[in-house]
Design a protein around this nucleic acid. Sequence first.
DNA 1: TCTGTATATGAACATATGCTCATATATGAA
DNA 2: TTCATATATGAGCATATGTTCATATACAGA
Lengths: 102, 102
Amino acid sequence: MKTQDHAFLSEETIEDISLMFKALADPTRIRILYMLAQEECSVNHIAEVLDLSQSAVSHQLSYLRTLRLVKHRRSGTAMIYSCDDNHVISLLKQAITHSEHT
Amino acid sequence: MKTQDHAFLSEETIEDISLMFKALADPTRIRILYMLAQEECSVNHIAEVLDLSQSAVSHQLSYLRTLRLVKHRRSGTAMIYSCDDNHVISLLKQAITHSEHT
DNA sequence: TCTGTATATGAACATATGCTCATATATGAA
DNA sequence: TTCATATATGAGCATATGTTCATATACAGA
């Protein structure tokens, strides 16, 4: 197959996709996203349930927020986070299903 | 929701999934896998088409081989690589479709 | 065997990543 | 306002990552 016959992805698409997969490529973020896929959670709740430091969770949530994969709202002194990208959750669940059936 | 009421992923599943997503989290590997999804290719062909060094391509293919995402066979002096994990290709294509329709 | 082409691989390097620690900010109660 | 709780964030650090460079290995043809 010659170079000009290949289908190519645009730079923008490649960048977009790699950022999405990067977000899913870390055990901590997988665990956080999997929790948020079940229900919205406060930062402390995530930290306690997953046995992580408050700071580590907050940093990761900030990262996920930048990519618009999660959103948050204030509730008193707490911040309640929830998923904001169903497609990424769908990719995650698909990967889980595949992994658990191998 | 209390800690014991959460659904948790096994350590093994989390590790497995993060490795899979890590493989898809780099622009070079995305481009290589996308090429191989179209047809099997030699190392040099990939390097030429994608304008990468032979060494960089070989290193990445070695990486993808370790994860069993690609396989290879010899053809004379050339090594012909092809995809060996349909599910990962499916995840990639799904991400592409999503990205291009946003 | 010698030569050329194709691929693999180890070392080194620059950058990215994920965490901790310390501290800043924000809200609610007293 | 003052204090306690919840969250955010910057700096620093150890490790991981992706590439280049040099070189090793493997096969085909003369």
